Computed example of a mutant assay.
Amino acid sequence: MTLEIDLSAIGLTAAQELEYHSLVVDGGGTEDALATRWDRSADDVRRLLVSLRDLGLVEQATFDGERPVWFPTAPDVSLQGLLNSRRHALAVAETSVAQLTEIFRRDLNHADVGDLVEVVLGPEAVRARFLQLELSAREEVCAFVDARPVAVNPEENRAEVQALGRGVTFRVVIERASFDDEATAAETRDALRANALVRSVATVPTKLLVTDRAVVMAPLSVRGHDAAAVVIRAPSLVQSLVTLFEAVWDSGIPVVLDPEDGLVDGPTGPDSLDIALLSHMLNGLTDDAIGKRLGVSGRTVQRRLRGLMDLSGSASRMQLGWEASERGWVTRRSVDS
């Protein structure tokens, strides 16, 4: 069985990770034996072992005057120590970021215009700023997407995947014409699978990116530049653009994935699978139990129910059940069955 091991997050290089894994799986050995096993020079092996020793991952022992043998320390001790050190460093860094952010926001009321509004010029600079803002999001990203990508193409946007993986909420309003582009359609499918919320409208008023309701990025027309954008931190302007986003969001139609993983744009009500999901939900079944009964995954159940909540404007599953009954989507008979 091949294990997927990734220790880069706690500071190990690829070579350190590979050879420590070898020591854990295959056991220790002398420097010469390890050089043969790893197909490395003796000097290279020596440097690697010393670096692993400095991290507390290997130890050296000599038996009956033989050549020293290197062997791994227990992962739950050595690696946990590195994890704890990294967690402490991250906690200190997070506290520092929070303190700097508080100072920055406190000074916004008497900041210069340049601190409140930043102009970004050129495709590369716009792309880098866009991705940086997505990566910096802690709670929510809201966006308008039109059919004319300029600086950031859908296939290049890995920051969104990383942010979704951290649990950041994404709400995206997309122009329907954008789905004609396969890259945009593929990115939308991936986002929906990762539990992003997507709605469609005929046209969006502008491209827009809002992170944590504190920073806004919007396009700017500047003579002599192929791409330009403005990054806004002024609270009153940010609030106005957040209000614009919410108004367009409320007018949009939820986009969901059908059982064949295709995009369904513009549903006016639940389909037969949705009705079955609702009935089982109201009967108290868990998402996994519903999925087993209907032959779909638990994630599909969650995604479908979230889409129905979005469609009905429900803030909770309890409210969704009430809305489903009021709208005639389910009846007592269908629930009891």
Rank of each mutant, 00 (worst) to 15 (best):
56 G>P: 04
287 D>Y: 13
86 R>D: 02
248 V>E: 12
258 D>F: 07
194 A>W: 03
104 F>T: 10
71 F>H: 08
50 V>P: 01
37 R>G: 15
280 H>A: 10
123 P>H: 11
70 W>D: 10
108 L>A: 14
293 R>A: 15
315 A>C: 06
127 R>I: 06
71 F>L: 14
106 R>E: 12
46 R>D: 12
193 R>Y: 01
101 T>V: 05
162 Q>L: 10
209 L>T: 00
208 L>A: 03
212 D>F: 02
303 R>A: 06
185 A>F: 08
170 F>R: 12
130 F>R: 01
113 V>K: 14
260 E>P: 00
251 S>Y: 08
311 L>I: 02
170 F>V: 15
182 E>I: 11
198 V>S: 02
18 L>R: 15
94 E>W: 10
19 E>C: 09
152 V>W: 01
302 Q>S: 07
24 V>S: 02
148 R>M: 13
173 V>F: 04
181 D>S: 05
234 A>C: 04
77 V>N: 08
161 V>N: 06
2 T>I: 13
122 G>S: 07
328 G>H: 08
330 V>A: 13
219 P>I: 06
72 P>A: 09
166 R>Q: 09
263 L>M: 07
211 T>A: 08
204 V>P: 01
31 E>Y: 02
39 D>E: 14
251 S>H: 11
239 Q>G: 14
226 D>H: 09
114 G>V: 05
243 T>D: 15
38 W>E: 06
142 C>W: 06
191 A>Y: 00
323 E>V: 01
66 E>N: 13
24 V>M: 11
221 S>F: 11
191 A>W: 00
125 A>E: 15
195 N>S: 02
19 E>R: 13
124 E>G: 05
245 F>M: 11
135 L>R: 09
265 D>R: 07
215 V>W: 09
314 S>R: 00
85 S>H: 09
176 R>E: 13
136 S>I: 01
176 R>D: 04
107 D>C: 12
286 T>S: 12
175 E>P: 06
184 T>H: 11
2 T>H: 15
119 V>D: 10
333 R>W: 03
324 A>P: 02
98 A>C: 08
54 D>R: 13
62 T>G: 02
190 D>I: 01
121 L>M: 14
79 L>Q: 03
225 H>A: 14
13 T>P: 14
154 P>L: 05
122 G>D: 08
200 S>W: 09
216 V>F: 04
55 L>P: 04
44 D>G: 12
320 L>G: 04
279 S>C: 13
19 E>T: 15
42 A>D: 12
122 G>V: 01
